[in-house]
Computed example of a mutant assay.
Amino acid sequence: MRAVLVVNPKATTTSERSRDVLVRALRSEVDLSVRYTRRRGHAVALAREAAAEGVDLVVTLGGDGTVNEVVNGLMTADPPQLDDASMAERLPALATVPGGSTNVFARAVGLPREWPEATSMILEGLRLGRSRTVGLGRADDRYFTFCAGFGLDAAVIHRVEQARRKGRVSTPTLYLRSIMNQYFFASDRRHPAISLERPGEKAEVELATVIIQNTAPWTYLGDREVNPNPAASFDLGLDVLALRQLRVASTTRTVTQFLGRQPDPRGRQVLRLHDTPEFTLVSSRPQAFQLDGDYLGEREKVRFTSVPAALRVIC
């Protein structure tokens, strides 16, 4: 089996020594080539090249941003043709070694949080031929694995990224402080500007912020799951949670419901949609936008679609 390991050398939870251990472990099972990312977006090109070369497996070592780039590279590649093969069968399989601060995708497919245990599980999966096929989400022309956000949560991610560029460490405390600052001091909470449009359905208007999930949980605060849409699944369409208002009482209640042991957010200010194949978000003013925890700037319109059975994952 031919494999490519795409390494983000800035991965926060690994060192050069641990990467060497990982490479030796993988080479015990596969014919491995190691390629390092040099800039943001580079993993897209590396994964696309690997697929065009006809390799069997692409392994990532990094966080969710690296996984997202590799997935986008695979999904936009031109792999060798195979008769009667689905796209997932034509593309290399994906394995994700957690190397970031949260590693939502790796944990969502059942891998342990720490990279040595996750690597052992991946190696076992390779020996046993164990994999699963997952669906993806797509926002305009970009794919995502577990979540997207339009509005408040994306603005919070932007704040966190700015803090990290200044040397701050990504911690639950940093996220909570960023949420509070964005909510109270930088959000227009009085004038909801977003509409959600679905084919054949009446538009949902005057929404304040929207969270989209392709699986559950949405993210983690340390070991605590954050679960706006607990029924979201890789095997179904997209799930949506939107808040109609960002009033203090109702927003606090909804966030508390996210974090509960049996999350089931409800209320007059809450809109939830389950297993949705496609929809479009339109805003009367630019909104912060994120995919898989990476801030992508501001948008006024984004079309979302579900892409079933898109990719094979070793787990």
Score class of each variant (00 low, 15 high):
116 P>R: 12
260 G>P: 10
272 R>Y: 02
133 T>S: 13
307 V>K: 06
299 R>V: 15
63 G>A: 08
228 P>M: 05
106 A>E: 04
212 I>K: 07
289 F>M: 08
6 V>A: 00
156 V>E: 05
41 G>T: 03
235 D>V: 07
107 R>A: 08
244 R>W: 02
5 L>I: 00
53 E>K: 13
155 A>W: 02
62 G>A: 05
186 A>E: 14
248 V>P: 01
195 S>V: 03
178 S>N: 02
125 G>Y: 02
236 L>S: 14
278 E>P: 01
278 E>F: 00
45 A>V: 08
160 V>S: 13
297 G>E: 01
13 T>M: 10
56 D>R: 13
185 F>N: 08
120 S>H: 05
248 V>Q: 05
99 G>S: 03
262 Q>A: 12
159 R>M: 10
28 S>W: 11
70 V>D: 06
287 Q>W: 02
194 I>H: 06
101 S>V: 03
99 G>C: 01
77 A>F: 03
314 I>Y: 15
28 S>M: 08
306 S>V: 14
285 R>P: 07
151 G>D: 04
136 L>C: 04
79 P>H: 13
202 K>L: 05
310 A>T: 07
283 S>H: 04
204 E>P: 02
105 F>Y: 15
312 R>W: 00
288 A>N: 14
29 E>T: 05
62 G>R: 05
47 A>I: 09
194 I>S: 06
164 R>I: 11
313 V>Y: 07
134 V>Q: 02
268 R>F: 07
20 D>S: 09
268 R>M: 08
211 I>K: 00
261 R>C: 01
106 A>I: 03
42 H>T: 01
102 T>V: 12
61 L>F: 12
188 D>R: 11
258 F>A: 00
169 V>N: 06
